[in-house]
Nucleic acid binder design. Structure first.
Lengths: 229, 229
DNA sequence: ACAATTTACTGATAATTATCATATTTTTAA
DNA sequence: TTAAAAATATGATAATTATCAGTAAATTGT
């Protein structure tokens, strides 16, 4: 199942598309592909990364575990996203863990290929910069949301986010199925609180569920809820 | 009071130090210096920025106001920091307002100078990228803190942050004096809650105050509190 | 210097959210 | 397949935090 970066579709979604043919060839020659099973880590908080991970398939959560067992998810990364970039760029150990939420297929790209290109190809560097600017904006938005919105509003927002970013399956359920615990860790609340709100939303006809799958029933009302009506 | 970027000390703290002599000259020729009074905005949420602001003096808060009047401060920027970069890089309007917390002196650098250098000087781009990587890490830490720590812990952390980043004056008070409201907006809590906790910390001998000035009395205990003891 | 306005503070109370306990359902693995 | 483990669900309660109301102190502008 090995393949060349030059032909890889996910490259279209990330900064690797700004690489020259030769640079891409080098990356392709040095990369290794690996599969990560659901629940397994790509890397963990504090690790020194020797490269970055390019997601080909599946979804990873970037999160940090606190002393009292709370795990805050900062970002969900899927196809095309590059993980570990920040750590490689600042030459520090990671502040977040990356754990597979799905079975994943990722490529590991040694940092040398990245660093070299960063120093020589301004287009690539600028492209990476643009992605990072986007991530920073999103992170700022999360900060503002957590502190200004109620748990209920953030739950509503999370469902809309999941629909917009990962889509729905044939039966109208969110394509990315997260455990209740993961949902609560995205939203930043206790698992029981998240479950309660799911029940409430179900009663109100905003969502429907089947096992752990969740489907959005009334997007408008969810949106209104996010806005505070 | 006009001066040349080439001789500016604050440049040492930001990405402009990676510019070539000629690039810097261009920036210097196109920049304008302006003063911003305490409480006045450099720019506001939704503005399209035609350049970036380089802080020479004073402190600015980057924040977002919610519908119900809550203002979450995402970052405090002082000497040497460049504001508006993200917006210029992603060519979007800003998602945050920048308001002077102090009287400020800033340089406005038109985006053309920045964009040109970004496309031509990989060292500069990489330097900007490193700064942004740092900001992103800080933002992630804020997210985790808000959701995993209590208001009391975040208050303690805020005081330590203010000491470490802005220092103390001759009398041992935090050099950056924020209103109670601003403190509560950094921490992400109600103003009354912040005030209550300040009173409590005072009683416990962790801090002392004089008017709106706050001094740290027992750094160790504050640290322990942040860690959850 | 003084009235007006803003900011700081305190108490009482309400609302939100977390925690603990426990039951039920689902998933996992022998 | 079936016992064990894990995840989901719900109720009762506690803890945290916000809101409202009102007073005191500090700042501001004239």
């Amino acid at each position: 199942m090995e393949s060349r970066c030059e032909n890889c579709i996910v490259r279209q979604f990330n900064s690797l598309r700004a690489m020259s043919k030769e640079e891409l060839k080098k990356v392709s020659d040095s990369k290794t592909t690996k599969t990560v099973k659901k629940g397994e880590p790509l890397f963990e908080e504090g690790d020194k990364l020797n490269g970055v991970y390019c997601v080909r398939n599946g979804v990873s959560k970037l999160s940090k575990l606190s002393a009292n067992g709370k795990d805050q998810i900062v970002k969900l990364a899927s196809k095309g996203e590059v993980l570990g970039q920040r750590s490689v760029i600042s030459q520090e150990s990671t502040n977040l863990s990356a754990i597979a939420v799905d079975d994943m297929e990722v490529c590991f790209i040694p940092k040398e290929s990245i660093n070299n290109t960063l120093q020589k190809n301004p287009n690539f560097t600028l492209e990476v910069l643009r992605h990072m600017a986007h991530d920073l904006k999103e992170a700022d938005d999360v900060i503002v949301n957590i502190s200004q919105k109620t748990v209920k509003q953030r739950m509503a927002e999370a469902f809309l986010y999941l629909k917009n970013n990962f889509g729905e399956d044939a039966d109208g359920f969110l394509a990315l199925t997260l455990s209740r615990e993961d949902i609560s860790n995205v939203v930043g609340t206790a698992t029981e609180s998240a479950i309660r709100i799911i029940s409430e939303f179900k009663k109100k006809g905003l969502i429907h569920t089947s096992g752990k799958k969740i489907g959005i029933k009334d997007e408008r009302k969810l949106l209104e809820m996010v806005e505070g009506f």
